[in-house]
Nucleic acid binder design. Structure first.
Lengths: 125, 125
DNA sequence: AGAGGTACTTACTCGCGGGTGAGTACCCGA
DNA sequence: TCGGGTACTCACCCGCGAGTAAGTACCTCT
């Protein structure tokens, strides 16, 4: 719905994988979920400084559709929703690991700056 | 020039790598170059059915800037330009391999169609 | 009472990624 | 001579991805 076509015919595996990871924040969400395990919506948002609520939801919904993340809703009075990686999400993350290393290497080469997210995990009460 | 910012501060390696691969055809160009070695502009174009000349050039130029491909111009009467991967391009491709496998697996799962490019290598004269 | 937090939805807007098509300078084969 | 090929550049347009902002329903803390 959000992203029009998708699942369209692909040239190769990379093409298919890129389709799923396409989106400004998807790979970061994957990374965040991978490192912290289960996370609530607001936690995830705080982990990715700069992302808007709209994009966060849109990406999470698409990734849910693609079977990458699991969405657990608790029917409680203050709403509570937990997101976690499915096995496909985990394997995708593993496949992204080597890419991540290449990227880190590149950052060293070109001397790119790194955005450090305030790791909400320990800090906040 | 074409793509505005780039090389901006990144969240992590994946972010940095994605920046370089972002673009509708970049990963496919990488793949094509990896499989055929050195290729001329028109050959590359024929290998990626659907890509426009403009995007082909734009992507190739950006990838050259990023140090992924090497551009060799022969000052001949019928223009001849050969593109090949640099060592960084080769290593990026290696890093993309596992992603490619994940994507192939996904294509099998969801039963996505595959676009088969007429491999110009053997066919055409 | 009012601010703030939770997890959203909806509407509006804007920029740029990408597509189309024409033009260029030269040569070759039919 | 004319079509076609090589490797582009330039100008224009359009749609979608992404950002901004406001609204919602309910609860807790100050």
């Amino acid at each position: 719905m959000a992203t029009a076509a998708r699942r369209g015919p692909y040239f190769c595996g990379i093409d298919a994988a890129m389709d799923v990871v396409a989106g400004k924040w998807k790979s970061l969400i994957l990374w965040e979920l991978h490192h912290h395990g289960t996370r609530r919506f607001a936690e995830l948002r705080r982990g990715l400084p700069g992302v808007s609520e709209k994009m966060m939801i849109q990406h999470l919904r698409e990734m849910e559709e693609d079977g990458l993340v699991h969405r657990e809703v608790y029917r409680e009075v203050p709403p509570k929703v937990e997101y976690s990686l499915t096995e496909h999400g985990v394997s995708l993350n593993a496949a992204l690991a080597s890419l991540g290393e290449w990227g880190s290497e590149r950052m060293r080469r070109i001397g790119a700056e790194k955005i450090v997210a305030d790791s909400d995990t320990t800090a906040r009460r």
